[in-house]
Design a protein around this nucleic acid. Structure first.
Lengths: 196, 196
DNA sequence: CATGTTTTGGAGTTGACACTCCAATCTTGG
DNA sequence: CCAAGATTGGAGTGTCAACTCCAAAACATG
C-alpha cells in the first residue's frame, strides 16, 4: 500500500506496474490480487491513502489556520518541505488528479472529494477569522479558501516543472498578501493612519 | 500531429497508443515512424505543438495585457473557454506537465520552457504597467506574473477535477484583486480619500 | 488431531503496444 | 521514358503488463 503510493507518486500511475509494486512491497502476485482484486481498486486505495496522508500531515497546521501568522507558518512549512524534496514530485493528490481526472470518472470523484476536504480545512480557518472580525465583512472566506488551494496547486506544479521554489513562493505570497489586504484594520492601525 | 495532440489532451500520453494516433490521423504505421522515429519524438513534438497553440490562442490578449481592464478581459476569456469546454481537459500544457515532468527530464525541460514563454507574456504586460507607474514602485511585476500563472494553473486543475469553474474564477479573481490593490492611486483617488 | 477455510507462491495465459521490415507506389532528375 | 531515390502500406515480431489458476502452506475450529 505505502509502497504502491510511493511508486505512483514517483513514476505516476501509468509508470507503475503491479510487478513493481510487488517487488517493492515484497509480496507475490496472488497476495496483491487477493487483497485488491485488480489494479483499479489498488489505485483508488492509493488515492484514499494519499488523501489521508496529506490531510494528516497538514492537520496540525490546518486546524489552527485562523490568523495571518498561522497562514505564514503554513506557507513556510510547505515551501521548506518542497525545497527539501528538491522540488521533485509536486502534490500527491494534484499529480494523481492531473493524470486520472479526464480518463476515469470514479477516480475524479475520489480526488474531488479529497480536494474538498483539504479546502474545508483552509475554509474553516478563514471563516473563523471572518466571524471574529479579523477579515473585513465584505471579504468572502469561502472564495479565498478556494483561491488559496488553487494557488498552492499551481505553485506546486510550476515548482515541480521548473525545479525551483520561486513559483510556489510567489503564488502563496500573493494570496497571503491579498488576504492580509482584506484584514480588518484594528484600533492601532486606525490611530496610525494619516492623510497624505 | 493535431490528431495526436487532441488524443493526448483527452486521454493523456499514456492513454494514447500509436495505433490510436494512426487511426485518428488516417495514416499508416510506416508514415508515423518515418516522420517521427519513435513515440518519444512524437510526444515532444506534441509538447511543442500545444505550447505554440496556447501561445497563439493567447497572443491577442496577452500582447496587450497591460492594464487592469485587459487583465479582466483575459480572465473572462479563459473562464468562458473553460465553461464552454464543460470544464473538461484542464490546461494542455499543465496536463502534459503533470504527467511527464517527473519521469522524463527532457520533456520537463520542454514544458518548463513553454511555461517560461507564457509567463514572459504576462510579465511583459505587468512590467509595462509598472514602468508606466500604474503599479506602485514596491510591487514586483515579475513575481506577480509568476503568481498569476500559478493561480491560473491551479484554478484550471481544480476546475477540471470538480467540473465547475468556481475554483478558476476564485483563483483569478483573487490574483487580479491583489494586483488591483497594488495599483498606484491616481489623482482622483487621492482627492477622494479622507480620514476615518 | 482431523477437517475445512483462508492465505500464499509463482508459473502460465492473454492481450496490447511500440516498433520493424520489405515490397509496392510515387516522385524526381536526366 | 527510365532509373534512383523517397514515401507508403500493412503484416509481422518481441516485450511487457495485467490478470488467472492451482497446488502448497498456514490457520482456525470441533
Amino acid at each position: 500500500m505505502a509502497a504502491a503510493a510511493a511508486l505512483m507518486f514517483e513514476h505516476g500511475v501509468g509508470g507503475t506496474s503491479t510487478d513493481d509494486v510487488q517487488a517493492a512491497a515484497g509480496v507475490s502476485t496472488s497476495q496483491l490480487y487477493h487483497y485488491f482484486g485488480d489494479k483499479r481498486t489498488l489505485v483508488r486505495a492509493v488515492i484514499a491513502y494519499q488523501t489521508q496522508n496529506v490531510l494528516d500531515a497538514q492537520q496540525p497546521l490546518l486546524s489552527q489556520l485562523d490568523s495571518l501568522d498561522a497562514l505564514r507558518t503554513w506557507r513556510d512549512a510547505i515551501v521548506s518541505l518542497q525545497r527539501q524534496r528538491q522540488c521533485q514530485g509536486g502534490c500527491p493528490i494534484g499529480s494523481l488528479a492531473a493524470e486520472l481526472a479526464e480518463t476515469w470518472p470514479e477516480a475524479r470523484a475520489d480526488l474531488a472529494d479529497g480536494f474538498g476536504q483539504w479546502e474545508a480545512g483552509i475554509r474553516n480557518g478563514l471563516r473563523a477569522m471572518h466571524a471574529r472580525g479579523d477579515l473585513r465583512p465584505d471579504a468572502d472566506p469561502d472564495q479565498l479558501a478556494l483561491a488559496t488551494l488553487a494557488a498552492l496547486q499551481g505553485g506546486l506544479l510550476l515548482t515541480q516543472v521548473r525545479r525551483d521554489t520561486a513559483p510556489l513562493e510567489a503564488a502563496l505570497d500573493a494570496i497571503l498578501a491579498h488576504i492580509a489586504s482584506l484584514a480588518a484594520p484594528d484600533a492601532s492601525d486606525i490611530a496610525a493612519r494619516h492623510c497624505p
